[in-house]
Amino acid sequence: MTTASHTITGLASAKDLFALTKPRVMSLVIFTALCGMLAAPGSIHPVIGFTAILAISLGAGASAALNQWYESDIDAVMKRTSGRPLPAGRMDRETALHFGIGLSVFSVLLMGVAVNWFSAAFLAFSIFFYAVVYTIWLKRSTPQNIVIGGAAGAFPPAIGWAAVTGDVGPMSLLLFAIIFFWTPPHFWALALFMNSDYSKAGVPMMPVVAGRQSTRHQIFGYSLVLAAVAVAPFVLGLAGAVYGAAAILLSGIFCALSWLVARSKTTEPKDMAAEKRLFKFSIFYLFALFAALVADRVILA
């Protein structure tokens, strides 16, 4: 950590500006957006496709910067986030705000000029949803924050799809729904073993408000809905057997791991092996499911 004076924090390092975009979250955004684009009917010129992914990534980075600008007080008291540039004192809030707004405007304009204005409007809405609806409005006011806020993370594949087709179709809605219903079990598994962090910060995460057992049961409930939504493209004939087999297998494992979480009674975070396992698998699940969709399209083509 750099110990810097007030003047130096006004000139954030490039490394910290990059960290403000949450690069690890961005990798999932890039991947799902790319899959949405590859799964869409029709074709897109590689240069335009690259630009669309770049714009979606910059939009996600902008949302992350605005999120950290607003949440620097919460981040400072949570162990997991206290090392971020703002709470660690390596950057001032004004820089983060300017960076976030600048990147938002640039990403939307880039999408509109190079790709199409429908996906640009979609991207603008997703940034607004994450930065305002989720971060400013929902996160501190309701334990349903993750459920509704999950929509923000579910937009990228639909935007990738819209970059190719210029509209929203049944398959892009299903891709949206998959991430939407994946988010609560993914985040609540994390929140269960990070419970003390969230309660210390006063964030009304489900385990803090409804208790661990209720959260565990809801994780299992959402996993069942996720499994149904994940298999739907195959059942409805929108995807082939490769995707269908992968969706059934992966969702089966997801539900089994969620069932172990639902049965767990552990109270100590260090003993929450089932929750940690589900959290790790949930990340793999999303990557594998979307990769299977693309593989399915390639094989069918």
Partner: peptide, 26 residues
């Protein structure tokens, strides 16, 4: 945001060095 604030105490030589290195890198 990158201007040196005249109301703040001047930077030490070490801070000046860090500041200029960041400017160059950016």
């Amino acid at each position: 945001m990158s201007e040196i604030d005249k109301d703040k105490p001047p930077m030490s030589p070490e801070e000046q060095k860090v500041y200029q290195a960041r400017q160059k890198h950016r």
